[in-house]
Amino acid sequence: MSMLDIILDIGFFAAAIRLAVPLLLGTLSELVAERSGVLNLGIEGMMLAGALAGFATAHVTGSLWLGVLAALILGALIGLLMALLVVILRLDQTVAGLGVTMATTGLVFFSYRLGFGESATPPAITPFSTIPLPLLSDIPYIGPVLFNQYALTYITYLLVPALAFFLFRTPAGLALRTVGENPKAAAGVGIDPIKVRILALMAAGALAGLAGAYLNLAAFGSFTFGIISGRGWICLALVVLGRWKPFACAGAALLFGAVDAFQLRLQTSGSVDLPYQLFLALPYVATLIVVIVNTRFAAAPAALMEPYDPEKR
C-alpha cells in the first residue's frame, strides 16, 4: 500500500475522525479554561481520571452512559481542585497544573490497581458501537465517514457550534471572554472574575473527563496506564493552532486525528521499513512545529496566566 492509497481510503477518514474526537474534546476543554485566563496543565490528569471513572463505572454498572456521567463529574471535581489552587490561592498556573496532573495520575494508577488488581488479561467492557444516522449515512463518501460514528462523536459535533454560540453570542460567554482579557474591567461591570474562572475550570474539567472516557468507552474498551500518554499536552498546542476559536480548534483536532490515523496505517501497512516508534513520535513532532510556527501568545487571551487579585488596583 503506498502512502497515497492510505490517504485515499474511506476507512482512513473514518479513523481520522475517531482519533480526532478525544483531541477535539480536550481542545475545547483547554479553550474554555484559557478563554477565562487560566492555562490548564491539569488537563492530562483530568483526561486520565475521566478515562478511569468512565471505565470503572461502566464495568461495575454495565451502563456506558453512567460511565460518561461519572467521567463528567470527576473531571469537574478535579477542575474545582485546580480552581482552588490557581484562582483562590493564586498559585503559579504552570506548577499547580503539573501538580494536579502528577497527583491525579498517581491516584488513578493506585485506584485502578486497588480495584482491578494485576492480571495478565486486563478487564474489558463492550464499548459503544457506531450508530449510522438514517439518510445522512447514505450520502456517498461523506456519509460513511461522518455519519457512521459513535453517539459521543455526534455529541462532539454539536458541541463545537454550541460552544462558539455560547462564547460569542451570549452574555455569559462575553463575561468569560472579558475575564480572560481583562478581569479588572470585568469586575468593574459587576462580573465576579473569581466565580467565572471557577466555573470555567469545572466545565473544562468535565470536558477533559469526557475526552478521556471516550478513549475507552468508545475506542478501546479497556483501561491501560498509557491510555492518554500525552494527548492532553497535544491539546495545549491545538488551542494555539486553533487561535482560541472553536471551529478553528475543530479543524486543528481533525488535522491531528489525520496525522494519528496516518501514523497507525503506515505502521500496519508494513510498506515502510522503520521502527514503528518513529511514527508514534510523529504527532509530538507535529505539535512542536505547531507551537514554533504559531508563537504561543500571539492571539492568546490577554490575561492568560495572570492571577486575579481583587485587592490590587
Binding site: L39, L41, T94, S229, G230, W233, L236, A237, V240, L274, P275, Y276, Q277, L278, L280, A281, Y284, V285, T287, L288, V291, I292, T295, R296, F297
Partner: peptide
C-alpha cells in the same frame, strides 16, 4: 530567540526523545 513558550516545547521533546529511544532499543 523566537519567544516560543517552553512548557509545551519541553514536554513535546520528552515524548519525541522517548519514542526515538524506543526505536533505537528495538532497532
Amino acid at each position: 530567540r523566537l519567544k516560543v513558550d517552553e512548557v509545551v516545547s519541553t514536554l513535546m521533546l520528552n515524548f519525541i526523545v522517548m519514542y526515538l529511544m524506543m526505536a533505537l532499543l528495538s532497532g
